[in-house]
Amino acid sequence: MGESIVITSGKGGVGKTTTTANIGAALAMEGKSVCVIDADIGLRNLDIVLGLENRIVYDIVDVVTGVCRIKQALIKDKRFPNLFLLPAAQTKDKNAVTPEQMKELVEDLKKTHDFILVDCPAGIEQGFKNAIAGADRAIVVTTPEVSAVRDADRIIGLLEASEIHDPRLIVNRLRVDMVKRGDMMNVEDITDILAVDLIGVVPDDEEVVMSTNRGEPAVFKDNALSGMAFRNISKRIMGEDVEFLEFDVQESFFEKLKKAFSFGK
């Protein structure tokens, strides 16, 4: 029996889909059988990030409405023996799937896969409620910006209210140079505010943009820092104890001096 994980954030554009694609690929590279579900109905994107956009025949709405069987809709990623995509419908809306249908679908997939990753749409409306319906646990993605952190806080509260406890946090697109200057919240600032446990930190990396352009997850790249971060997250999901990457974020000597000279707040 597999495990289902919803990847959510509240705010759009923080990297949910990229995160889902990369963690899914990384878990598959570890030999796990993985199914990634695009729950963003009407704004399908996981397919293009994974480079599988030309292979879609059926979608999630076809499955829940009985137009096809699950197996017919699943797209097998040829680069990994164990990665499957269940694409979103592009022409329907967020109400095309009900929470009950989602739950049933995820339960079914859990029988044949080790991990089911659900890429949640932005927002807190029906699409969000559908996406979290079948989830055993949740990963909340945020970036070090006030808007993203605020929305993450809201989402954590809503997950809690839906009985999905103890979500884990990914801080995405961390700019080490800005953190050093004191112009970006660091990971500790964010976990402090949100009071949830961290499962990974992904540095801002051009490689993610370039990989996505090509339709290849960044975890393919051995030397990409972001890819390494995603591989580590997937290991932590599997229960391994992996140390967090050091991005050399110690405050510079001048920052410390500056602080020493500035009294009060």
């Binding site: 006030v146 004191g182 919240m185 660091n186 500035s262 707040k265």
Partner: peptide, 17 residues
């Protein structure tokens, strides 16, 4: 900048949040 006591923008962000 070295001697001025302006708070860093990250502390402003944290306080506001």
């Amino acid at each position: 900048g070295f001697f001025n006591s302006k708070p860093s923008t990250k502390s402003i962000a944290k306080e506001r949040l």
